[in-house]
Nucleic acid binder design. Sequence first.
DNA 1: ATGAAAGCGCTAACAT
DNA 2: ATGTTAGCGCTTTCAT
Lengths: 331, 331
Amino acid sequence: MTVTIYDVAREANVSMATVSRVVNGNPNVKPTTRKKVLATIEQLGYRPNAVARGLASKKTTTVGAIIPDISSIFFSELARGIEDIATMYKYNVILSNSDQNKDKELTLINTMLEKQVDGILFMGGTITEDHINQFKTANVPVVLAATYDDTKEMASVNIDYEEAAYEATKHLIEKEPNQPAFVTGSEETSINRYKFNGYKRALEEANISFNESLVVEGDYSYDSGIEAVKQIIELQEKPSSIFVVSDEMALGVIHGAQDMGYKVPEDFQVFGFNNTRLATMIRPTLSTVVQPMYDIGAVAMRLLTKYMNKEEVAEKNVVLPHRIEIRDSTL
Amino acid sequence: MTVTIYDVAREANVSMATVSRVVNGNPNVKPTTRKKVLATIEQLGYRPNAVARGLASKKTTTVGAIIPDISSIFFSELARGIEDIATMYKYNVILSNSDQNKDKELTLINTMLEKQVDGILFMGGTITEDHINQFKTANVPVVLAATYDDTKEMASVNIDYEEAAYEATKHLIEKEPNQPAFVTGSEETSINRYKFNGYKRALEEANISFNESLVVEGDYSYDSGIEAVKQIIELQEKPSSIFVVSDEMALGVIHGAQDMGYKVPEDFQVFGFNNTRLATMIRPTLSTVVQPMYDIGAVAMRLLTKYMNKEEVAEKNVVLPHRIEIRDSTL
DNA sequence: ATGAAAGCGCTAACAT
DNA sequence: ATGTTAGCGCTTTCAT
């Protein structure tokens, strides 16, 4: 039924070893026999079985990628970076969504390890000891992308979130020297803590006292941005600017404000984070922190290939450059 | 080094067959021995090798998904539907981007077949004979998602694009009885032809003569929407409404018009397609055709599981319901 | 340059 | 209920 290497060997009057050699491009084959083998491969319609190869060679040329939500504009961009580099290095990727749910994450890691992936790319909110232990049961490399492990034990690719948030906040304060509201995500997520620290540092540096009630927690969605700005507008002392940790939520903030008759940036400056495509798909266009999502994915995958090939790695915790892009949602 | 089923068998004083049975939940195992085996599995840290299992059983519980571009807001939503149902049925998915490039598509199909996927989900613009031939070399089922095969040979999940476009156009015409501009994608893509047919039918039904110059081709991107509207505005006889085949491009059309001082919907009504999250992330909110992307992915994956399980399939060309959502970008 | 043979870790009859 | 035994299709020494 299915054509195997053995069938090809028989038809071509060679041994399976020889067929294996030509399939794998081993130079130790006489051109004539190579040609003969290639011809019968074509004729028989032979297709190598990667599963059998994987069992014999202990390499699957497949990596696993665990991602919170592929339908998010942020992560899908990251995934594209991963995929492109994976393709470039001849790897396939098994992609799975975790919804940042710890149990799912742990299960997924296990499933991927069962499938004998050659490496794992992990994106998530929080890295716990359980995660690290689970990873240690693997004898394959793991790289975190846009994900922080406070212990720095694991290889990772990120930007400097603290500094980026600091710069954004500073920009806001320079225009209007009072405390911007801070619309963030769960404080369980390390990255949000770093962003908060940067925000706080900018305040302290400008001698602006910190008012807890200007910190609002959302879930990164557009709707939660609308909710957040409603809450902010009801405050006794309204801020004159709002720093939002994701672009999508920032769009919600802008539209929420506009829908209630406020003007951006005149009544509220709004600063986003990530520079997703959304940032220019709104009026006023969104000032935001440029986080190179695609590059983070690409670099993370590249780093993983180095580990998989047992190459030397100069820096296991890669920090990619970020910058601030000022558009029309700020003064 | 790695613990195998054989190690577990030896330690637990049973045969590998018994270990295999407990691992696979076969009921023909005495509770006591099951317990014993489970204990030594735990103790030894045994993890089943899915590659070996795949080779022996000829099933990998992995499916392949070929998608034009995972970073697109449209396809990433579709992918999420696929992933969720795949997870529900215990499949993993190898996801790869094709950029709608025929060679890449053909290569990807081949690679996935080499990896012995149990089925393939395909999303793309054009299905050629080469595609169909390539699929035929597979002895695994294939399902098309949001993709048309004019021969109807292949299983697929879609909506009725012709009818949907007809309804949208009709709505526009009812408000303003003249020809709307039509901003579309490549006419090589069958789906665009169906949409065009629906648009045309609505015109004919209303006895509106068709002017070719009101048809503009874009590439679905925001920027190409901006370009398209620029081109439309330069026309001798400007239309009073614009039907755009993708939401993202429709946002470009709206902002392009607004940036030039026009009002939506007063100067131009704008109608989108897909109802991606973007549709409510703009002011005015976008009237659009609701295409259930997530459901298309989910239903396609479900259909694939049926084929993989050799279940009876009532309808191989599934047409999901669509509807029109009127928001503020139309009168 | 080519071949022979031993696995890789598991499933699936078949036997008991 | 449990064990025995062939493979699954390939890679990889080791010979020649």
